[in-house]
């Protein structure tokens, strides 16, 4: 078990294995997103209340899922880095932060676009959108903190601590914002709490969510690989690799 974890923690080993895994992840991601996208956008029935505008759900919901999951994954990677000093975990956390911030932005933007036909405004202080906005600020904080240190080791540790503090706070923030929302605007239409969706609607959504997750894994693998090369540029195996390559 321990030997396996340490093997997993070796950048060289990871670089090799991820080269084989990466195409598969990309393939699965593209296939799922294509199937889910076409099904959801073209074939799923229109919503009886919102018409076709509800179809933005097929981007909004997977992005929102991913935005939250990436933060948890980033904090988990930070924890692994802090406890077992596995640098690979930190490399993964480094590349996850901008990706998570990007997903949060996609969720916010698609939420705003969705708001136009639904609420008649680009922005409403809806509970979910507000939590998403706060999550976006949390991501920005982690990225900014990492960028502020001159020493990379300190930057990694500091970002890990902040990610862990953030992940403890995310549920607290989420529940308090929901509580705040019900207090101030009771019984307005909420975007995602809706009557049970028929299968033709949620099946493509599920496929899209899975597709987004595969996309996340694929991007993380790819970017972690380049992060490995960047950080280990002075190591012999990287020099040999690059020497062979060209």
């Amino acid at each position: 078990m321990w030997a396996f974890i340490h093997k997993l923690g070796s950048p060289k080993w990871f670089y090799g294995i991820s080269a084989r895994l990466s195409p598969w992840c990309w393939g699965v991601a593209v296939a799922l997103i294509l199937v889910g996208g076409v099904w959801g956008l073209a074939f799923a029935p229109a919503d009886y209340q919102q018409g076709h505008s509800f179809r933005i759900i097929y981007v909004h919901v997977p992005a929102a899922f991913l935005a939250q999951s990436i933060f948890v994954a980033m904090a988990a990677a930070g924890f692994i880095f802090m406890v077992w000093k596995i640098k690979l975990a930190d490399m993964a956390a480094t590349v996850m932060a901008p990706l998570g911030a990007g997903m949060t932005f996609v969720a916010l933007f698609s939420g705003a676009v969705w708001g136009v036909p639904t609420w008649g405004t680009w922005w409403q202080w809806d509970a979910r959108l507000t939590s998403m906005l706060i999550l976006f600020f949390l991501y920005i904080g982690v990225i900014a903190l990492r960028g502020a240190f001159t020493s990379r080791d300190s930057a990694s540790r500091a970002a890990s601590v902040l990610a862990m503090v953030g992940v403890i706070n995310i549920p607290i923030i989420k529940y308090s914002v929901e509580w705040w929302y019900t207090l101030h605007q009771p019984a307005t239409f909420s975007v995602t709490s809706r009557p049970a969706m028929p299968t033709e609607m949620w099946a493509p959504l599920l496929i899209m969510v899975l597709g987004f997750y595969s996309f996340f894994i694929a991007v993380t693998l790819m970017r972690t690989r380049s992060e490995i090369l960047r950080r280990e540029a002075s190591k012999r195996w990287v020099r040999e690799l690059l020497g062979e390559g060209g």
């Binding site: 706060i134 600020f137 949390l138 904080g141 903190l145 953030g166 706070n169 923030i173 308090s176 914002v177």
Partner: peptide, 9 residues
């Protein structure tokens, strides 16, 4: 930037 989001609850 780090602290304000955590202050919201």
């Amino acid at each position: 930037l780090l602290v304000l989001p955590l202050y919201i609850p």
